[in-house]
Amino acid sequence: MGEASKLSRYLYTVIVLFVIWIMLTASLDPQELEFGFIASLIIAAFTYPIFTTAGLSNLHPKKVAYAIAYIPYFLWAMIVANLDVAYRVLHPKRPIRPGIVKCRTVLRTDTGKLSLANSITLTPGTITLDVDGDEYFVHWIWVPDEALTDNEEEHVKVSSANITKPFEKFLKVIFG
């Protein structure tokens, strides 16, 4: 995906900044809106080159719908993982089996990889240690038996299915 035109990137930055402004002030007072709009226009002029490369295409309805659907999905995954780690902390025998595993991702864009790494880290029990190309190195608090094979491909397959796959189906559409 090549870079979008300057205008589209600029407009996208303005829209995002303005939405954040509205939410931060949480008021629809015309004076507030006017000032926020002017401020967004000015700030976006300076920041759009580092803010986005895809521009308005980020606001494609399908992407927005997936992004909204991703929120409850992610929160649910986070709560489940939280309870899992809570169980490991409270259990008298402390059932942990940590290790650094290797996962592979299908995401191509940098933003997509960043959000995947963030999602992995936010889910308790897994922390992204490093990303190299399409390979993720993840510290995992409970490495299952199936991932403990000597076969490299098998290992990557199992750990990817457990760590990256659940998020990828959404992030693939949102960020590509």
Binding site: R97, G99, I100, K102, D132, V143
Partner: peptide, 9 residues
């Protein structure tokens, strides 16, 4: 700890 793929990498 059971595995360290990062070290190998």
């Amino acid at each position: 700890s059971v595995v360290d793929k990062y070290d190998e990498h």
